[in-house]
Computed example of a mutant assay.
Amino acid sequence: MKWKPIKFLALGIVVTSALSACSAAPEESAEPQTAETETIQEQQDKPTESNTDTKTEDTESSKETSEPVEGQPPTVTEASTTIIKALQAEDMETIASWASQEGVRFSPFANIDPENDLVFKPDEISGLLKDTTKYVWRSTPGNEESIEMTYADYHQKYVYNKDFIHDGENAVNAMIGEDAHLGNLHEVYPEANHDFVEFHVNGTEPDGRDWHTLRLVFEKIGQDHSLVGIVHDQWTP
């Protein structure tokens, strides 16, 4: 009878051990579940990182396409700026480089005369300032007196006869001066394939009639521009 408590004690230890083993089983199975959860989370994180990278690449690509691309033809504004500066500097080589192969028409007045206005090819333009030939450029309205002079004199009176760069305004395909008019510009140079840039200096006299306008006319060749006309305009009686 003295051994019975010992037996019960041993039996209790066995039962307790068994219960401990059963309760430990869920804890062991919980470890794979945690590992599996982390793996799924990692898989979810990977697409997110990929999407972020894609968005970053798209943004960078958009920035690149929004920036100017080298090698693109100059705009009509850029072309006219180069040419007006060349006219101011009497740099006829630069004018020749922009000239159409068909030539550039020089008109002293807004009403262009396709039959009588003089047209010079690029190789002729480059040497015009040194040319001593007196050309008949047209006749003045009213008295019909012939405008006969060298190009150097014509340049001073009917091309860059005002400081169009510093004293004037300019606009693309638009008139600026209130008294100025386009004449037959669009008849000779249709809008569909031509642009013009107007440089205008307002008059300083009380009646304002001493205004002057210079129009650079360009033929549109795709995205490029070729100079085809230099048209001067001023008040005439």
Rank of each mutant, 00 (worst) to 15 (best):
V76I: 06
A79R: 14
T81K: 02
A86W: 12
L87G: 05
L87T: 06
Q88M: 07
A89W: 04
E90H: 14
E90C: 15
E93Q: 09
E93C: 07
I95A: 05
A96C: 09
W98C: 13
W98V: 08
W98G: 08
A99T: 09
S100F: 08
F106A: 01
F106C: 03
F106V: 00
S107D: 08
P108F: 06
N111M: 13
I112K: 11
I112V: 15
I112F: 11
D113R: 04
E115V: 15
E115L: 15
L118F: 07
F120D: 08
K121L: 11
P122A: 10
D123K: 06
E124I: 02
E124P: 04
E124F: 05
S126D: 02
G127R: 06
L129G: 11
L129C: 06
L129P: 10
K130H: 09
K130A: 12
R138A: 11
S139W: 04
N143I: 03
S146A: 14
M149P: 01
T150G: 06
Y151W: 03
A152V: 09
D153G: 01
D153S: 03
D153Q: 08
Y154P: 00
Y154E: 01
Q156E: 14
Q156G: 13
N161W: 01
N161L: 01
N161S: 08
K162E: 04
D163G: 01
D163V: 11
